[in-house]
Design a protein around this nucleic acid. Structure first.
Lengths: 229, 229
DNA sequence: TTGAAAAAATGACAATCATCATATTTCAAA
DNA sequence: TTTGAAATATGATGATTGTCATTTTTTCAA
């Protein structure tokens, strides 16, 4: 269970870090981060940063989930990404030295650390593995977003829902998908009502099982075949 | 007029390079690139690389235009970006060490140079300005793609067309927009027929002027107001 | 210049999907 | 446990947009 406190989280024992961008840090570097970072407990639906504000550092998710989204003209959110334990958020705009064009908010209670821009950039200068890892990560995300764009442009909402659920399966792993209908609709890029109707279809087709808000996938194969590819 | 030859293009006098990612190179580095790169003349509609192939280096556009696109499930293209003189293409997948997820093809006759992966990565290792420029560029593009996704998800085709034309205005500068209706539709993310109908509307509303395939914008303000923002 | 192929344009029609209204369920605070 | 608000669900309806068929225009090579 998650510690509901501002207790310090030790980087050297952080489970998420192993497979993260900071996995390459040597002991000295880890100790430095550990001494300089700030740890915070976030409640559900708390904001990490807002569109338009200036990046002051990076956020490291120790535990919990964070949605990255943009608000369209009519205020409707478009979820771009859902980040979980081990992921870092907020460094993209930091590099481009521009205000955030996305916002970040917890989806559940979370423990999240903060590393200042200065510390992080220094580490990058002195650590080629970290640097290359970040370049690789940025490139990987660019490819993902190209796929996202093509899906949005060419697939029906039903197909996009299937595609989105496949992504969510990876994120939630063995756990049932636990998102509000509105968030799910904002990830798929559709109206909440449309999303609910399609969930009903999936339920009737035996693809998913729903317990109140939690969604379990029963037939992954069928999801793939609907998503196409 | 464009030289229709495989004549060597000299980096030190390349107009596009000044404002490009390679603008930061010192004389030695430029000489090195100049000696090692390959220059090529491309006809209209020639491919630089295909989806699925492995990156062997980066392409530097000296003159001309290149569309970056994905093919969706039914073979329909989704244009992700249009690159022009001074831009580099093909380095994103090179960093992630994965096959290209997008393809690149000239929209018009072009002179394009090629720098091998090895040379380019060596330059990046030794040149922090280049390296940071690339990180900045990748981050900037990630933001652009987030906007692209939100637009796709939330705007009508009419609004997206206006938005796309604003982007194309930047790309074509003073020149009229010169794209096939199909390419334009594949950039906006709609059917060619729908696009043609909307162009007709824009024409009747006095927003654009059309001479065969070439489109000139008469009322930029109105485009902005339709695009929203 | 001409003829054939490709591109652009138009029409008819149907399906998808958003919107608005309203009902029902769930959840959390009192 | 009750209660009110938020979330979820359902229904009715119409606009947007994709598809298919066909015509017109443009392009380019012979």
């Amino acid at each position: 269970m998650l510690e509901k406190s501002h207790k310090h989280i030790t980087c050297s024992t952080c489970v998420g870090r192993k497979n993260s961008l900071l996995g390459s840090l040597c002991n000295d570097e880890i100790d430095h981060v550990n001494a300089h970072k700030a740890c915070n407990y976030y409640k559900k639906h708390q904001s990490l940063f807002l569109e338009g504000s200036f990046p002051r550092g990076v956020f490291c998710i120790n535990e919990g989930m964070v949605k990255i989204f943009q608000r369209g003209d009519e205020g409707k959110e478009q979820i771009i990404h859902i980040a979980k334990s081990g992921e870092m958020v907020g460094f993209r705009s930091m590099f481009s030295e521009t205000p955030y064009r996305v916002a970040a908010e917890t989806l559940e209670e979370s423990n999240i650390c903060f590393i200042s821009k200065e510390d992080f950039l220094n580490m990058m200068d002195s650590n080629p593995v970290l640097r290359n890892g970040i370049i690789k990560e940025l490139s990987r995300e660019l490819s993902d977003r190209a796929d996202f764009i093509t899906n949005m442009a060419q697939k029906s909402v039903r197909e996009r829902l299937a595609f989105t659920m496949i992504i969510l399966l990876d994120i939630y792993e063995k756990e049932p998908i636990n998102l509000s209908r509105e968030d799910l609709a904002n990830f798929v890029g559709t109206a909440t009502e449309t999303l609910i109707r399609l969930l009903k279809d999936f339920k009737e087709e035996g693809i998913i099982e729903v317990h109140t808000r939690k969604i379990s996938v029963l037939n992954k194969e069928k999801l793939f075949s609907i998503a196409g590819k």
